[in-house]
Design a protein around this nucleic acid. Structure first.
Lengths: 218, 218
DNA sequence: GACGATTTGGACAATACTGTCTAAAAAAAT
DNA sequence: ATTTTTTTAGACAGTATTGTCCAAATCGTC
């Protein structure tokens, strides 16, 4: 018999830290759905299953809470992107299929998942109001992502897998291509299936390799 | 942004219709800057140089005003895109440079200009809250844009200028490439210079033609 | 079980916004 | 010049939200 009994009619109690986290998650969700102005503390408290006062106890006021949300989201998203970047096919056997799989991982785990959509929406919504909050993100996120990806492509080119003039441009175009037609659907809230993401990735890599693949492979 | 350029001694009186337009413009600006929830009628009235009551007289209530804003923006944007689409190089002498110029027109006049940024931001902000409002836009906008552009590319392929399997995919990738790295900058409110847009277009067309250009031109 | 820390629900003042109403001013039309 | 329409400024009620305060309930820990 477990020490902490969970009877079916009462919700399992959560610790101090767990509530802090719960509030942060709820706030992320509500801020993204409603925007900063549209969100209110009662919604967030309800969504977190917590009293309004607890929200204030943990995070001060609405603006501090919003900043905490953006920070957490930024860090998680950047971590996810770099984790996925580490799976880049450095010594590919089948370049085409391995790039497709990489693109699928990148889209599925980083760009089309909840965090990615939330962060992108928050940036679009509040980017002008809180520039300093998001310029930090840009330097740690996209800038480094581009550089890291460019370095990978440069290596592939050096190893003779690809034919690339400017790895930076290739990296950005790679990202643009694998997202090509997903943005519009995501903005409208469509549910993107695995097949849709795979199709998009396949088309993208096909074009990418037509542009940057070795024309006369050694 | 200046409200109205006026001569120092006389305020130019504006007609009924002119005020309606003025309110609509101001509302567009304010809704985009603040979001639906964050915008309030007093801001809009002040921005339009009009009393609050006049806003209500012309447009009923806040939601009706918002809908009118989206409709106007959508129509203007679609019209702009199709006007630019009409300048597509159907019988190019220098395919590369004519596609670059076309891409610059498309970006400069439709996607990176005020309307384009506003509409995109509104969709990102309120797309989930007013799905019916924007699904209409998607059908009249991106869907038709893609189809029209695909038809142009299909013709170029048929005429032997390009080597394209699937014109639909080519069209979407064309659009993705010419926007590649502009979105992030725009979301943060950066001012995009002509040179930046030209550079982006040049890189995009270079890659596009490496992927879809005739490999052994006739 | 007892104690200190945390959480809760509710009340509360202060502020802000929407949408309506009015009477007076301004503009347009006759 | 007179009449009609539109606009204005302000007051107004109703509602919503923020952030604070507090006493009672609950939780974690000893």
């Amino acid at each position: 018999m477990a020490l902490t009994e969970i009877s079916p009619d009462t919700l399992p109690p959560r610790s101090h830290a767990a509530k802090r986290m719960s509030v942060l998650e709820a706030a992320t969700f509500v801020f993204c759905r409603e925007g900063y102005a549209g969100a209110n503390i009662d919604m967030i408290a309800a969504e977190a299953g917590v009293s309004r006062q607890t929200v204030y106890n943990h995070h001060g006021d609405k603006e501090k809470l919003f900043i905490a949300v953006v920070r957490a989201l930024t860090e998680r998203t950047n971590a996810g992107i770099f984790a996925t970047l580490a799976t880049f096919p450095d010594q590919p056997e089948d370049l085409n299929s391995e790039l497709v799989d990489f693109a699928i991982r990148l889209n599925g785990n980083c760009i089309c998942n909840g965090d990615g959509k939330f962060l992108r929406k928050l940036i679009e919504m509040e980017g002008q109001r809180y520039p300093e909050l998001f310029t930090g993100w840009r330097e740690d996120g996209p800038s480094k992502t581009w550089a890291a990806l460019a370095a990978r492509f440069a290596r592939l080119a050096y190893s003779g897998y690809l034919d690339i003039d400017d790895p930076d441009i290739a990296a950005r175009q790679f990202l643009a291509l694998i997202n090509a037609d997903l943005h519009v659907s995501m903005a409208l809230g469509d549910k993107l299936g695995k097949d849709r993401i795979r199709e998009s990735a396949t088309n993208a890599i096909k074009t990418f390799l037509r542009a940057y693949g070795k024309r006369y492979p050694a």
